[in-house]
Each structure stands twice: as structure tokens, then as C-alpha cells.
Computed example of a mutant assay.
Amino acid sequence: MCSPQNAGPDLHDLIANPAALTQRFLADWATGKTGMKSLVSGLTTELRAVFDSFDFERIKECLLRNLLAWHAIDHVTHCRIFHIEAERVDDPAMPVLPTEDELI
């Protein structure tokens, strides 16, 4: 999880405690708190099973400066992971075609 100004103290504490993060996320979803009102009806049995099987320990806080440093190290992989279209670079130079004399 990464944001321009990093995680606030409440979110930081939840990320550090995956069990609490799981409970809080589910409670907010079920009650429609924290901007989740439109999702309340979407908490189906199937989706709840996916939620219950998710390992919330996989969620880590990523400092923006680290994300930018990783991007600078491997721009191609960063773009692939985050589904970003990389800037197009100039086309390679066209190879010089051999002359008729060189083909013989």
C-alpha cells in the first residue's frame, strides 16, 4: 500500500496487525463505513469466502521514496507490474540494405 504522503498512524497500525486489519476491513464493509456504502450489498457468500481465504499479512506499507527508487532501478518491470504504458522511445535505425554488387 502506497500513497503520496504514506499511511497515516491508524492505517499504519492496522497494517502492522493483520488480524485487526482483517476485522476492521470486514466491519467497515458490512456497515458501509469509510466510503464503502456502495459495496455493502456486494458482500456475497462467495466474496466472503475469498475474503476469508486472503492472507492480510501480504499487505505491506510502501514508502513513496522506496517505490520511486525501485522504479528507477527497473523501469520496465515497474511498468509491467503497475500496468503502465512505458514511454515509446525512438525506433532503432533502419539497417542499410546491401547493394546489388554486394549481393553477388
Rank of each mutant, 00 (worst) to 15 (best):
T99M: 02
T45I: 08
D91P: 01
L26N: 05
D10V: 10
L103S: 05
R48I: 12
K37P: 00
I84T: 11
W29N: 01
H83K: 13
R24K: 15
W29D: 00
L14T: 05
I73T: 14
K60H: 12
L14Q: 05
V50F: 06
E57H: 10
D74T: 04
P18A: 06
A86F: 03
F82G: 09
E46Y: 12
A69W: 06
D55K: 04
L14C: 03
P4V: 05
E87G: 02
T44E: 08
H75L: 11
R80G: 00
T22D: 08
V89N: 01
P9E: 09
R80A: 03
T31M: 08
I104Y: 15
L39C: 00
D13C: 03
L39N: 09
P98Q: 05
S3M: 05
I73M: 14
M36L: 14
C79S: 05
F82V: 01
L21I: 03
P9D: 08
I81A: 04
D91K: 12
A20Y: 07
V50T: 14
H71M: 03
I81C: 01
I59T: 07
G35N: 05
E102W: 00
G8W: 10
C2E: 08
N66C: 05
H12M: 11
E100A: 15
K60S: 06
E46G: 04
T77S: 11
G8K: 07
V96I: 15
D13S: 12
R24E: 11
L47D: 04
